[in-house]
Simulated assay, not measured.
Amino acid sequence: MSVYQGEKIKTYLSKNGVSVIEAAKKLGVARNTVYQYFRTDNLTREVVTNIVTKLNTTEEEIFGSSDNKSPVKRINQNARDLGDVTIYEEDGDNKFTEISPGRYRMGVDLVPVYAQAGYLTGYADKEYIEELPKHYITVDRFVRGKYMAFEISGDSMDNGDIKEAMPHGTIATGREVKRELWSSKLHNHQWPNWILVHKTEGIVAKQITKQCLETGTLTLRSLNPDKDRYPDFDIQIDDLVQIFNVVKRELQ
């Protein structure tokens, strides 16, 4: 008689970049129920059938075959099979994997639109971050650091006439600026777009047009040419909790 261990579901979801939030939605259960599955040593046949059906997979892929072979490894979204799908190095920086000479693949946590309301309180919560879906990008060079991806919502950064535009649905991957560098000039000559996590406004995607080091003020602008709807405005850098310089944009 087969024994279906819930820990293998957790491993399967992790390897395929599926968050607990996504899994719960697909399975039609609460997130706490998914966590209960992880802790169960012998899942019922009904639960197993629901999982393999709703996740469009097989028992062998999740739990292994009868001869104890490991499940088939699969990664979702736009990633290719890289073997070890850990997206962080031991020091916490994001991991780059060379896939061909001069080409590297990196995985990052993605904050989709539906998760952005909770990000302001969850950005420092390891469990919250682990539940986020993963996004993978390919680059021709890499700079070590901590990266994160955000789904752009709305049209404030939409301007089809310029290459920096980030229309609705764009996935913007940014490298986090360390807090000790906030008192210096934020350079934006190479990558002019920024993701700013504001204490009250939440996630804001803008360009920085001016920075006053004396007052700690940033002047932000939208790319949408309708300045009546999207005028420039000032914020205080002390009201931010995170700053990311956007290094790659992909329209889904």
Rank of each mutant, 00 (worst) to 15 (best):
38 F>W: 08
29 V>D: 05
76 N>I: 11
86 T>D: 12
95 K>C: 02
51 I>G: 00
49 T>N: 06
34 V>Y: 01
85 V>N: 12
25 K>S: 11
73 K>A: 04
84 D>G: 04
73 K>T: 07
85 V>I: 13
86 T>C: 12
78 N>M: 14
28 G>H: 07
99 I>A: 03
22 E>A: 12
52 V>I: 13
94 N>Y: 02
49 T>H: 07
42 N>M: 08
41 D>T: 06
44 T>M: 04
43 L>R: 02
29 V>S: 04
25 K>M: 10
92 G>C: 03
71 P>Q: 01
68 N>W: 11
34 V>E: 02
32 N>K: 08
72 V>A: 00
86 T>P: 06
77 Q>H: 15
91 D>R: 05
45 R>A: 11
62 I>M: 01
49 T>C: 05
60 E>M: 07
75 I>R: 06
20 V>S: 07
98 E>K: 10
95 K>D: 02
14 S>N: 14
89 E>T: 13
69 K>Q: 13
25 K>G: 10
47 V>Q: 12
14 S>F: 07
86 T>L: 12
62 I>N: 00
80 R>K: 10
91 D>S: 03
53 T>I: 09
19 S>M: 14
91 D>Y: 04
89 E>R: 12
28 G>L: 08
34 V>D: 01
72 V>F: 00
32 N>M: 08
28 G>N: 06
95 K>N: 02
70 S>Q: 09
30 A>Y: 12
89 E>M: 10
33 T>D: 10
79 A>S: 11
58 T>P: 02
81 D>A: 05
34 V>R: 02
90 E>F: 15
52 V>Q: 03
47 V>F: 06
84 D>W: 04
79 A>W: 04
96 F>H: 03
15 K>Q: 14
25 K>A: 11
45 R>L: 09
34 V>S: 01
62 I>L: 01
75 I>C: 07
31 R>H: 12
95 K>P: 04
69 K>I: 11
23 A>M: 11
60 E>Y: 01
32 N>H: 09
79 A>P: 06
46 E>P: 03
28 G>M: 06
49 T>S: 05
79 A>K: 08
38 F>T: 10
91 D>I: 10
24 A>D: 07
75 I>L: 05
27 L>T: 04
43 L>F: 07
13 L>W: 06
43 L>Q: 03
65 S>A: 13
46 E>M: 08
31 R>P: 11
77 Q>F: 15
70 S>L: 06
27 L>Q: 02
95 K>G: 04
57 T>K: 02
55 L>Q: 00
56 N>Y: 08
24 A>R: 06
85 V>D: 12
45 R>K: 12
47 V>T: 15
34 V>I: 09
33 T>P: 11
37 Y>P: 00
40 T>N: 15
60 E>C: 04
71 P>F: 00
82 L>T: 14
21 I>M: 15
12 Y>S: 05
74 R>F: 01
84 D>C: 09
64 G>Y: 02
90 E>A: 14
87 I>P: 00
79 A>G: 08
12 Y>D: 03
63 F>W: 10
25 K>P: 07
96 F>I: 10
16 N>S: 15
48 V>K: 00
24 A>V: 11
65 S>E: 11
30 A>H: 13
36 Q>T: 15
63 F>G: 03
81 D>R: 09
92 G>K: 03
47 V>E: 12
34 V>W: 01
40 T>D: 14
70 S>R: 06
35 Y>H: 09
32 N>Q: 09
79 A>N: 08
82 L>H: 09
41 D>S: 13
84 D>F: 07
